[in-house]
Design a protein around this nucleic acid. Structure first.
Length: 530
DNA sequence: ATCGACGTTGTTTCC
DNA sequence: GGGAAACAACGTCGA
């Protein structure tokens, strides 16, 4: 029997349960070296898009992983440096014969991993990859859909139902199942390979927000178990019925754990399925199963769409002439727009690293097609920095959705930064918590304090334009103007299609004939030609 | 081919 | 206060 020496490379998938690649690393192995590669230079660089709360979450997840590994006589190595260089060095140093990791379908990761595989091939090292981050293999979904990604949720659901239930999650390894496979560490392990502190990464721990969602697999499983105790709540869960502005989260907040892979989506899926069994329960898209399918849908599209996180060169994204406005963008990002509901959400995001999905809708619509007419790419970048659950595919997809650039097209449905929040928090308690400047206004004015008479502003200790900003725009004026701009952008896209049609392989005569036809008919014909 | 139903989560007004 | 219609009207899918 071969006695392998394995490296398991953790990236996402920061867990021991349902981790097939990790299990394979331990099979027929005498030694295993679990590693996580971190580039300290990246953490300190100016273009690093990871905020401090997100760093804290990651470091906690790594510490938790190391603790769990210790109970199995194993240890985690946090390797400082660039993946290609460090992997080569460590493989030589530890005389490695096998490298395992979880498949990551994000384009940058695919490219990185191809290079690593090539490198390992040259060194004669076996590479084993397992897919365990998503319920299904994106490529399989695409194949069943006829070679392209489904572009509507319904279509995705149809395909998913053809695939049957996702694979059952694997148990975490135990001392018994490891058969003596162990990690050998040196005396200066902590110094060379210990989990770094925030300070080591050049971050000031004092600038962290309150610790509401600690990182790690242990926290993930405990949080999931707490949610699963609420049978009725789980079975009747409907996302649109939950509140974006409750003082404690109205949803599970499992997203950060799913993003880092502290929790397996398959485990959560099957736990829900077991609970649903024999009971009346809500259905996708609004159910909890539905939420996992949304994740799956966006992962699938993102895995095959070029430039998925950009407008230009992105085939699923509508081209819209957004305008740059650094001042408005900065005020939006820092909760200084003068709309207390919007500002409360953006401040909660910055402080706590998590906001409700519908709160994301409100601020995303406001930044883009609703009020400020700023590109969704700008908003996506801010979310990427601040959200604990910032997930490349989901972040880009949802920003396209909210800006009516892809997937969602009813651009005339605009969230009101005043009215929307009143439905679930008429008293404005959420605003009072996160925007204390306006907390003394009566409920009638707290969503639009600029309408309060000056005497009331003075009584409330909050004079608009002095103690709290006046609103950046007049929402009813801006949203109406923006709806027309959206209509123009949609029309321009239609015209573009027509022009392409007459350029692509049509004779002048045909072109003339077709020009006389009705616009719609022409579009239909063009689609057949190309 | 054309038309109608539908789309996870809108707002305002009117009764 | 709860429900329905008006608002102005998108793309996608399937019969």
């Amino acid at each position: 029997m071969t006695q392998h020496r394995s490296i398991h490379w953790f990236r996402k998938g920061l867990r021991l349960h349902d981790n097939p690649a990790f299990i394979k690393a331990c099979e027929q192995a005498s030694e295993i070296y679990p590693i996580f590669i971190l580039d300290p230079w990246f953490a300190k660089s100016a273009n690093c898009r990871v905020g401090i709360n997100r760093w804290r979450f990651l470091l906690q997840a790594l510490r938790d992983l190391d603790n769990s590994l210790k109970t199995l006589n194993l240890r985690l190595f946090v390797v400082r440096g660039n993946p290609n260089t460090e992997l080569e060095n460590l493989c030589q140093r530890w005389k490695i014969s096998r490298l395992t990791f979880e498949v990551d379908t994000e384009p940058y990761a695919v490219k990185r991993d191809e290079e690593v595989e090539r490198q390992m091939g040259e060194m004669g090292i076996e590479v084993i990859k397992s897919l365990s981050h998503t319920l299904f293999e994106p490529q399989r979904v695409i194949k069943v859909n006829g070679g392209s990604a489904p572009l509507t949720y319904q279509r995705f659901q149809t395909i998913a139902s053809k695939l049957g239930p996702p694979p059952k999650p694997l148990d975490a390894p135990t001392l018994e199942s490891l058969l003596g496979c162990k990690t050998l560490i040196s005396d200066n392990h902590e110094k060379e390979f210990g989990v770094p502190t925030l300070t080591e990464l050049g971050k000031d721990p004092k600038s962290c927000g309150p610790l509401l969602y600690p990182g790690g697999e242990k926290e993930a499983l405990e949080r999931m178990e707490r949610q699963l105790k609420k049978t009725n709540w789980i079975c009747s869960f409907e996302k649109p019925q939950t509140s974006p502005n409750s003082l404690t989260p109205s949803t599970t907040v499992l997203s950060p754990y799913l993003k880092f892979g502290c929790l397996s989506s398959r485990l959560f899926y099957h736990q829900l399925a077991d609970m649903y069994k024999g009971k009346k329960h809500s259905q996708p898209p609004v159910s909890l199963h539905g939420q996992l399918l949304w994740r799956e849908f966006f992962y699938t599209v993102a895995s095959v769409t070029p430039n998925f996180d950009k407008m230009e060169g992105n085939p699923v994204c509508r081209q819209i002439p957004w305008q740059s406005n650094p001042d408005h963008l900065e005020k939006w990002a820092n909760g200084q727009t003068g709309f207390p509901f919007i500002d409360a959400i953006m401040r909660q995001l910055r402080q706590e690293g998590w906001i409700h999905h519908l709160a994301r809708h409100a601020v995303a619509c406001f930044l883009t097609r609703g009020d400020l007419w700023i590109s969704w790419e700008e908003g996506m970048t801010v979310f990427e920095e601040l959200l604990l659950d910032a997930d490349w595919s989901l972040n880009a997809a949802n920003w396209m959705w909210l800006s009516a650039s892809a997937f969602f097209h009813q651009y005339f449905r605009v969230y009101s930064p005043i009215a929307f929040g009143k439905k679930t928090d008429p008293n404005g308690d959420y605003i009072r918590k996160y925007v204390p400047e306006v907390k003394k206004f009566p409920s009638k004015y707290i969503f639009e304090p600029w309408t309060a008479p000056l005497s009331m502003q003075q009584t409330a200790g909050c004079v608009l334009g002095k103690d709290y900003p006046k609103p950046l725009v007049d929402h009813s004026v801006a949203s109406k103007a923006n709806i027309s701009k959206m209509a123009a952008a949609y029309n321009a896209a239609k015209k573009d299609k027509l022009n392409n049609a007459s350029q692509n392989g049509m004779t002048a005569q045909n072109g003339k004939k077709r020009k006389q036809n009705k616009k719609d008919g022409l579009v239909q014909k063009k689609l057949k030609f190309t």
